[in-house]
Design a protein around this nucleic acid. Sequence first.
DNA 1: GTGAAAGCGCTAACAT
DNA 2: ATGTTAGCGCTTTCAC
Lengths: 352, 352
Amino acid sequence: MSTIKDIAKLANVSTGTVSGVLNGKITVRPETYSKIMDAIAKTNYRVNALARSLRTRESGTLGLLLPSIVNPYYPLIALGVEDCANQYGYHVFLCNTERDTKKQSEYVYALTNKVVDGVILCNTELSKEDFAYLQKNNIPVVVNYPVDSDCADEVCIDHQDVSKKMIQYLLSLGHRRIALINGPANLFRCQERILGMKKAYEEAGLKLDASLIIEGDFSQDFAYECTRKLFKRKKPPTCIFTTDYMAASVLNAAFDLGIRVPEDLSVAGLDQAVVTRPTLTTVRYHSYEIGRQFAEMAITRKKHNAPLKKRTIIMPSSIVIGNSTGKCSSYIKLPHENTFLPEENREMNGEI
Amino acid sequence: MSTIKDIAKLANVSTGTVSGVLNGKITVRPETYSKIMDAIAKTNYRVNALARSLRTRESGTLGLLLPSIVNPYYPLIALGVEDCANQYGYHVFLCNTERDTKKQSEYVYALTNKVVDGVILCNTELSKEDFAYLQKNNIPVVVNYPVDSDCADEVCIDHQDVSKKMIQYLLSLGHRRIALINGPANLFRCQERILGMKKAYEEAGLKLDASLIIEGDFSQDFAYECTRKLFKRKKPPTCIFTTDYMAASVLNAAFDLGIRVPEDLSVAGLDQAVVTRPTLTTVRYHSYEIGRQFAEMAITRKKHNAPLKKRTIIMPSSIVIGNSTGKCSSYIKLPHENTFLPEENREMNGEI
DNA sequence: GTGAAAGCGCTAACAT
DNA sequence: ATGTTAGCGCTTTCAC
């Protein structure tokens, strides 16, 4: 490997000149320029990014923390992050934490050691210590959930609103027993989804059966088993609302149970990450764009020398109606069910 | 950020001692040891990996080139690579090339600049120049297809054998019009799959309709459209064989066309990356393990100081029978079809 | 066992 | 316009 010194010697100039030319920071005589370029071509010279970063304190790398890479939602985001980063000449360390707090910490510290220019926390809620550590080291942080810090940027989705609107839509189809297969209850977005659901019920003057809000772990296995269990209940749901990845599993479970979708069960997803039959009613998040925003935020914050005020973007989202949801029917009316109008429906005061 | 100098000053020792202790390369008096440790704890010191790498020429990072990240096969591999790398204290640059030759090149050069300890080329067939460049820079390279170089390791799958066995299985079900929705014809594994298919037909004494071998681009859109087109043919296939990601799309297309799987059409996949209904007959590759092997190879090659001989591993694979394949029937016998035993079948000499 | 000092390859003042 | 030089933070001889 040739170094800047070799180039300087070959071109009969100083290393400073070579460096200046390479970075477009100085103007030189055309003669000098070509001498340098010739030398570079001859030696196949390439900058050592490590040495450069050591001096400039810029590494041209971003760390992207994801809770999963198997859930198809995240590759979509990673794609956006990567594309945008590449456009800026940046690269991305992919850090798949598997929702493991320890792995999260390790990544945070490892990334700091490697002097990344920014860290993107996608659905990765760090501990106070880890977050503080990033801040102390002046590493630009971009998150997709609200944080206290004034100097971390946020690329968010109004999860509460999304959830509320979807539930409203499902209620409008006549569903009164909607199960929410949620993620871990301590996560912000999961709490928001519950709130949105509650609001939708409240505003409709309906009461919500709390047993239909289920805390899961975002895994397909859980969703599958959960669906089976729901259908062992005396009053199974007429509709299941969950993330796309889990919804795919719900569809499979329904298939295996001989439950028709949407005739017997409506299924609604969240984040438009899977392609199924029947097609899924879901919420489009523009994941790729979210990814791009993540990178954009991190990089611009780094490039900005002056301290930047916190920036918050709420990304748009829209409900996409598929074939997995339909009017609520009573196909799976169980023997023990009241054959009269169920009490839930009565609460709707004839709005159906 | 505190440096090794700060620690040295605080502990009243030299930087060399601190460094030696930190890397476990020297033994010091317990007293000295605790002085250093105290100082480190007090200052929250963390090594600067950049500076260290600049000296040691080891960065603790691997570059992983993938042709796609949306195809669920690749996240699975990435997971394996990452986990194994992490165990060795390494990190992974995820490089999603989208099968774009230019992006591939750019990544190769960028990674070299950043002084990666190894590059994993997963289904990424580099140009001669790019490959040579890596070799010239002494960067350990691991591939999953045969390469000329004596010093690149190979973690392969016997694609020909896999393809042959699957086709044999499908033939055994009575299928005689099996369509192969393949990837780009210039790719090694795609060629191998064709060869395997041909062998299976040959050995069965059957002749293969070349028009059923279709060059695709691994995209779901292509697979979907391709399926539709196949069913516009006078003689549609009774079976479609393709990769899992595309197979999922084939299932969707069949659903949309009202074609029942497996009654009207059998579908077989490759790489066990999707979960569908009906469940897919596919080939299990142990993708996660492949990923681990990738990382293992790259890292051990780097750690080995003496030049290592080329290592080649053939990873096992096994056919997994799902519900997407079944005995060939004549459900979709079209009016123009001969009602007598089709000529293809006659070639089987009564073996059916 | 520990310290001093050179140097990895680069950039950025500061000279000229 | 170009050269000189210090130094980023670390490791590693080589002394002692």
